[in-house]
Design a protein around this nucleic acid. Structure first.
Length: 310
DNA sequence: CGAGTTTGACCAGCGC
DNA sequence: GCGCTGGTCAAACTCG
């Protein structure tokens, strides 16, 4: 049960899937590599409004995953300040989540895309009306969204956690707004959004069809407010009551079970840690034996220090 | 009674 | 153009 396909017994190889693997350059580089991921992860997560702390023990980390860039042309390409993210609005920027780097004009770091028609995304670009998350909320309900008005994706990241609980505590409060059966998976996918009315962060939770003990959580967007509570004393809350309530549970998840980051970094993020990342999971989780070239291509661009691709 | 969940329907995007 | 699928809505329902 503890064994994961992504990590060999020696703990020196990380696999995103059967098509690609990461091999540490040397034993000494293990912790460095872990630190690399978590330093970056903390940075990245903080961009999303989370302050995930680094685990105490590197061996708790079981694997790092892949990401899908298939939708890059639609979701990235300078659209972090897209229409949906505008609703962070006036509330924004408590702790800087919604402002600052969050509104970093990603367009300045051009994101390579496999889709040559990425330029078409310019039609989606809000013409500088909003400054990142400082704009006004979308006034048109998506249900009444006009035809041709594309759904703007926010940057995403996902991670996998070995847990029997579907909905992991992360210090924020979530409201479930949908559940849907997923193709090729016996487990439904649940859709959550942050209960903060000014926050548009969404979260998808599903179980891996390959390993039902693994929960795949995908966050989309950035919180524009503090969390209610935070693991291991790193409380941001102004409400001690809540803080005390959440701390122990979350700590257990993040540090006893470890956080499995299932993510990717857009090539541009290797140049600027200020940039949020976009992680897209595939429409259907890849079969163990199936290969998604798009993953491979992207992973090839991301080689953490001390690691080499095999 | 308010907040959260469930669930069927609707819509948009994508691939063929 | 059509069908499939993911994502979202919203009414009904449950719970505290």
């Amino acid at each position: 049960m503890e064994d994961k396909k992504g990590l060999d017994p020696a703990g020196t190889e990380f696999k995103s899937d059967s098509s690609s693997s990461w091999t540490l350059a040397g034993p000494d580089s293990v912790s460095d590599s872990i630190n690399y991921f978590f330093d970056r992860e903390s940075s990245i997560l903080s961009e999303f409004g989370w302050n995930i702390l680094q685990p105490d023990h590197a061996d708790e980390i079981e694997s790092f995953g892949e990401l899908d860039r298939t939708d890059a042309s639609r979701g990235l390409a300078g659209n972090f300040s897209g229409s949906q993210s505008q609703s962070c609005g006036a509330a924004g920027g408590v702790g800087g989540s919604c402002s600052g780097a969050a509104s970093n004009p990603v367009g300045s770091a051009e994101v390579p895309t496999s889709n040559p028609s990425v330029s078409s995304s310019s039609s989606e670009d809000p013409p500088e009306k909003s400054t990142g998350f400082g704009g006004k909320p979308p006034e048109i309900p998506s249900r009444v969204r006009k035809k041709g008005q594309k759904r703007i994706r926010q940057p995403r990241f996902a991670f996998m956690t070995k847990s029997e609980v579907d909905h992991l505590e992360d210090g924020y409060r979530w409201r479930k707004y949908g559940q849907k059966a997923v193709k090729n998976s016996p487990f439904p996918r649940s859709y959550y959004r942050c209960t903060n009315s000014k926050c548009t962060v969404k979260k998808r939770v599903e179980r891996s069809s390959e390993d039902p003990t693994i929960v795949i959580t995908t966050y989309e967007g950035q919180h524009c407010h503090h969390s209610v509570g935070f693991p291991r004393g790193g409380l941001i809350s102004h409400e001690p009551a809540f803080a005390g309530q959440f701390t122990p549970r979350v700590s257990q998840f993040y540090y006893s079970q470890g956080v499995q980051l299932h993510r990717g970094i857009s090539p541009s993020t290797t140049q600027s840690q200020q940039l949020p990342i976009e992680v897209r999971e595939s429409r259907a989780l890849p079969e163990p034996t199936s290969q998604l070239p798009k993953y491979e291509g992207l992973l090839g661009d991301i080689v953490p220090p001390g690691m080499r691709k095999t």
